[in-house]
C-alpha cells in the first residue's frame, strides 16, 4: 500500500525524502517510518526517536497504529513548550 509521509523533525532525519512510500499492507506507523529511514539509508537512534511524534491523517497518532492505503503521516519534533 502507499503511505504519504512528511517530516518536520529538525536535525533528526535531516534530508529524508518526503512523499509517497510503498509499504506492506497492515504495517504500523513505526514500521512505515523504519521503511522510510531504510530507503533513505539513514539511522534513527532510540533517544532521538523519543523526540518525535506522529500525526496520522492530521490526528495525533501512536507508533503502533495500523495504517491503511492512502494514509498521510506527519513525523514531527515533539512539543516541549515555548
Amino acid at each position: 500500500m502507499n503511505i504519504n509521509i512528511r517530516f518536520r523533525t529538525g536535525e533528526i532525519l535531516k534530508g529524508i525524502r518526503a512523499g509517497e512510500y510503498s509499504v506492506p499492507d497492515g504495517c504500523t506507523v513505526r514500521e512505515a517510518l523504519d521503511a522510510a529511514i531504510e530507503e533513505n539509508s539513514m539511522e534513527l537512534a532510540d533517544h532521538d526517536r523519543e523526540y518525535l511524534f506522529v500525526l496520522v491523517n492530521n490526528r495525533l497518532g501512536e507508533w503502533e497504529n495500523t495504517l491503511k492505503d492512502g494514509d498521510k503521516l506527519w513525523i514531527l519534533f515533539k512539543i516541549l513548550g515555548g
Binding site: F53, L55, F77
Partner: peptide, 22 residues
C-alpha cells in the same frame, strides 16, 4: 543534541507550525 541544536538555531519558533498542525 537535537533539542539544543533546535534552540540554538530557531529557538522556540521551530515549534509553531508543528503546534498548529497538531
Amino acid at each position: 543534541e537535537h533539542i539544543m541544536h533546535q534552540f540554538r538555531t530557531t529557538g522556540t519558533s521551530e515549534e509553531y507550525g508543528i503546534c498548529v498542525l497538531a
